[in-house]
Design a protein around this nucleic acid. Structure first.
Length: 325
DNA sequence: CTCGATCCCTGGACGC
DNA sequence: TGCGTCCAGGGATCGA
């Protein structure tokens, strides 16, 4: 599930692998995730990949003006342009020898001038791809908020505290911050000891500052570790990331909080599964915790027994009871 | 302004 | 073993 650190990892890999290559031709499979497939087919060939940037969860392949085909391009299509790529949930982008058989769900192949293909695969097709000239691209990018790695503490605190929405919804809102998704939202909230359902406006300034710091530290560390691979994220070299080993909240329902040993719980916030420590991250009144699924509950109870026997686990049993009811 | 619901899509997990 | 059902989730959109 590519969020900022995963997209940054892919962008860096692609920069190493395909910068400066010229696109010779385009082959498309399913196209329902492409803004204008015909524009893509007609306008990519003949352009050189001059830069690769990350913008939130998007990658931006900056392309030269087309060469070679005199008079075939008109207006803005004769100038520099960009390929906008969003990996959605399951998107992968990587170069491959052109003769290598294409993997299932490969929907875009860009033949490069060194005999390789830049391939985009995406089983669920929640991604997005668009050929955009300068003006439409600029227009597109205005919809997004601050980069979480660049936003100042003051700006971040202001953006969070001026809103009455739940803090997790704000972290996920790409017009507030660009690039944060479910994993890094939960991880930074755990680190800052803030419950995801807390309202932005109800955070004390110190809490918002703490969240800003946690978010930056976590994103930077995750980039160093090349992102989180939960089910199927692979970088531009086809390698998984390592950050999933550092997760403290996300996906850890029923497992011990690494600060206080209380079982991590799950609830729905902003329509998304949200993981938190009920002890370290006090919930606002009326928040419904989901009951532990039977299987998780069994394993969790066993872990608590073992912790007590071995004298570890501290206040381990608190938080295993359900408040949902 | 903020919320939840619904849709998109497929593979994997789970229950029987 | 196999089959059906549910869930995962980023984003758009719509109605309350």
């Amino acid at each position: 599930m590519p969020e900022l650190p995963e997209v940054e990892t892919v962008a860096r890999g692609l920069r190493q692998a395909i910068l400066g290559r010229r696109i010779l031709s385009v082959t498309l499979g399913k196209t329902d995730f492409i803004d204008d497939p015909v524009a893509l087919e007609q306008n990519l060939p003949g352009r050189r990949i001059e830069a690769i940037e990350r913008y939130g969860k998007f990658m931006l392949l900056r392309l030269s003006a087309p060469n070679g085909t005199n008079g075939r391009f008109h207006g803005d299509d004769a100038k520099q342009a960009s390929l906008l790529v969003h990996l959605g949930m399951t998107g992968q982008m990587a170069p491959s020898p052109a003769e290598k058989p294409r993997e299932k769900h490969t929907h875009v192949c860009l033949l490069l001038d060194d005999g390789r293909e830049l391939r985009y695969t995406d089983a669920r097709r929640f991604g997005r791809m668009a050929y955009l000239t300068e003006a439409p691209l600029a227009e597109e990018l205005t919809r997004f908020g601050a980069d979480p790695l660049e936003v100042s503490k003051e700006e971040f605190v202001k953006r969070i505290r001026e809103r009455r929405a739940r803090v997790k919804a704000l972290l996920l809102d790409q017009s507030v911050l660009r690039g944060v998704g479910n994993i890094y939202a939960d991880e930074s909230l755990w680190r800052a000891k803030i419950h995801p359902a807390q309202l932005g406006a109800k955070l004390a300034p110190k809490q918002a500052e703490s969240l800003w710091r946690a978010l930056q530290e976590i994103l930077r560390k995750a980039i160093v570790l090349r992102g989180s691979s939960i089910s199927d994220f692979l970088d531009a070299e086809g390698e998984p990331g390592e950050y999933q080993r550092r997760h403290r909240a996300y996906g850890r329902e029923g497992k011990a909080c690494q600060r206080c040993s209380t079982a991590i719980r799950r609830g729905i916030v902003a329509g998304r599964s949200s993981y938190f420590c009920p002890q370290c991250q006090p919930a606002p009144r009326g928040f419904a915790v989901l009951p532990l699924p039977p299987r998780v509950a069994r394993v969790s109870a066993e872990r608590m027994r073992k912790a007590r026997r071995t004298g570890r686990g501290g206040i381990g049993m608190s938080g295993t009871g359900s408040r949902a009811r």
